[in-house]
């Protein structure tokens, strides 16, 4: 059992949690992830290691409440426990001094892009960062990102904050700008966003690293459910990734596989919310 030590709401639907898991904290590095299972009935879901504290033996996770598991997780409070917390999994991010780099975080992807941005900055890169979300209320960590960036751009789809539009628009301007010769781009966010980022950088042949979020079960290479098609063939995201050269990814196949269980996910969420309402009603009558 792993105890939740701290919890904070970054937005209405984005929660940060610090979990006691010394076995993971001892060897965790940026870019890796954990597999979390809430209780005996729970699904195993992958979440990126947003931060770690080796001395305290804790791991920070940040998640967006999307469906059954993340909604249930969002209801837990400090002192509550999780049944499984396995990791660290996947390969850490490779950090080096490349020159000028762009780090893009979309939605909850802002959380995992932050430690990468910080590490790239510390390694001596000139870091331009772009963060974006559908609307202002879904943005977080603006200041934190700003402090580790040489240049910082924020966008929202609906124009409620920063620039109106998608993250690919400022990215394209940067790529066009002859004064910046961009060495490498990192993009983490919804698969659709990552796809368009790689389409944007492709004509400029700027290497673009993405962190793929396929559906996983074990996270250790045992099921093959997380496989992705690259130019050179199928790879398992959990053991070979999660970071890949975005120009080689077959995005349409990835996007379609992500939606395979959509009906069941809806059913699970509805079933859960119905149960919560029933439990709520029960507590009310008891009162």
């Amino acid at each position: 059992m792993y105890t939740i030590a701290y919890k904070e709401a970054l937005t209405d639907v984005t929660k940060l949690m610090v979990v006691r898991a010394p076995h993971v904290a001892r060897s965790a590095r940026a870019g890796q992830f954990v597999i979390v299972r809430i209780d005996e009935f729970g699904e195993r879901i992958p979440l990126t290691i947003a931060d770690y504290d080796r001395a305290a033996g804790t791991i920070t996770i940040i998640f967006q409440e999307l469906g059954k598991t993340t909604k249930q997780l969002g209801k837990l409070i400090p002192g509550d426990t999780l049944s499984s917390f396995a990791g660290p999994l996947g390969h850490p991010t490779e950090i080096d001094n490349y020159g000028v780099v762009v780090c893009i975080g979309g939605g909850v992807g802002i959380a995992p892009i932050y430690p990468i941005t910080r590490a790239l900055k510390e390694a001596g890169n000139r870091v331009i960062s772009i963060i974006g979300a559908r609307t202002k209320d879904l943005l977080f960590w603006e200041e934190k990102m700003m402090t580790v960036s040489d240049r910082f751009i924020v966008c929202t789809d609906d124009g409620s904050h920063g620039r109106a539009g998608l993250v690919t628009e400022p990215l394209k301007e940067l790529l066009e700008d002859k004064d910046n010769s961009i060495a490498k781009v990192w993009a983490i966010g919804p698969a659709g966003m990552m796809k368009f980022v790689t389409l944007t950088t492709k004509p400029y042949a700027v290497p673009t690293i993405v962190s793929l979020n396929t559906i996983m079960i074990d996270g250790t290479g045992m099921c093959g459910g997380c496989r992705v098609l690259l130019e050179e063939g199928a790879r398992f995201v959990c053991v070979d990734g999660p970071e890949f050269d975005g120009h080689k990814v077959d995005w349409d196949s990835l996007l379609s596989r992500l939606s395979f269980y959509r009906d069941e996910e809806r059913e699970a969420t509805e079933y859960y919310e119905h149960k919560c309402r029933m439990d709520g009603a029960k507590t009310m009558t008891r009162k």
Binding site: F41, E43, R44, G224, G225, Y261, E264, E265, E267, Y271
Partner: peptide, 20 residues
């Protein structure tokens, strides 16, 4: 993948168990 979903994660008891 199929057997892990069914046996380890008990998908045959979905939605009482979460994994489909």
């Amino acid at each position: 993948e199929f057997l892990t979903r069914v046996n380890l994660m008990k998908a045959y008891q979905f939605p009482d168990y979460d994994t489909p």
